[in-house]
Design a protein around this nucleic acid. Structure first.
Length: 267
DNA sequence: ATGCCGTATGATATACGA
């Protein structure tokens, strides 16, 4: 079956309900993966999602910060839901489940990493690198040629020069430092992942999924970064049918600082 | 080096985002 999967860091599901509704009404992805829902499971606003046909839910939220969730239409039941913690820290950054056909779908919210790219003096940056190291080792242990995995989320790293508005200016800025890019490369190699967006968009073409709130004229200055990713294992790569970064969502009011990324693929 | 903006919280200032 051919399905569409969207990933979106919504920066609080409750603060951006109308924006989410606008996106769902327009695009109707079969599967929706959210990050930074910033709400506990017991008070998650499920009604909106049910009204738009997302009858399957896999919530992994917590109070105020972080939190991830997966939603799907009736035809795409979500089975074997797992809410996983990493580095011994309970921050609701990973939920995964099985889609029809045995495809395992992983939804991640990688730690942002704080201000300074310094593992000695910034515990958040240390956590970010450790998180990627541990996740990489886990996928490497589970690696099998026949595995059909999809990995999406706000990975908080822009790996390529063309994933940021200015490579040189961002070399010492968290999200694009060489040590982060190395950790992401190890993760990418852990299961021979295929970057679905770069599968279709040439590597020298700038493409972003995030624009800071601190730039009032985000569109004209266009100082973005590509922090939101969709990867698939090699067995699924021949089924990739297209990707889209929904840049228009950055202009919604109120807007998240991230926009949805959508993949179409056969599973 | 700082602020810029936005969200959440036992809030009216502070932590966090990246």
């Amino acid at each position: 079956m051919k399905i569409s999967i969207a990933t979106w860091n919504v920066n609080s599901v409750r603060a951006h309900l109308s924006t989410i509704e606008q996106f769902l009404a327009a695009r109707q992805p079969d599967v929706l993966c959210l990050q930074e829902i910033k709400v506990t499971n017991d008070i998650f606003p499920l009604d909106l999602f049910n009204q738009h046909g997302y009858v399957h839910h896999a919530l992994h939220g917590q109070k105020a910060y972080h939190g991830v969730a997966i939603f799907a239409k009736a035809a795409v039941p979500l089975e074997q839901v797992v809410r996983k913690d990493w580095c011994g820290i309970e921050q609701a950054r990973h939920v995964y489940c099985t889609l029809p056909g045995g495809v395992e779908l992983h939804n991640f919210y990688v730690p942002a990493g704080g201000d300074k790219p310094d593992v000695e003096n910034n515990e958040k940056f240390r956590h970010k690198l450790d998180f990627m190291t541990d996740v990489s080792a886990w996928f490497k242990r589970r690696k099998k040629k026949e595995n059909r995995f999809v990995l999406v989320g706000d990975l908080n790293v822009a790996p390529l020069e063309s994933d940021v508005w200015n490579h040189k200016q961002l070399l010492r800025v968290v999200s694009h430092t060489p040590v982060e890019v190395e950790h992401m490369a190890a993760w990418y190699a852990s299961h021979d992942w295929v970057d679905a967006v770069r599968h279709f968009v040439p590597e020298d073409e700038k493409i972003f999924s995030w624009w800071s709130y601190r730039s009032p004229n985000w569109e004209t200055s266009d100082k973005g970064r590509r922090l939101d990713h969709i990867w698939v294992t090699p067995t699924l790569a021949p089924g990739l049918a297209g990707v889209e970064i929904v840049k228009s969502a950055r202009g919604f009011a109120p807007a998240s600082d991230h926009v949805p990324v959508i993949v179409e693929l056969s599973i």
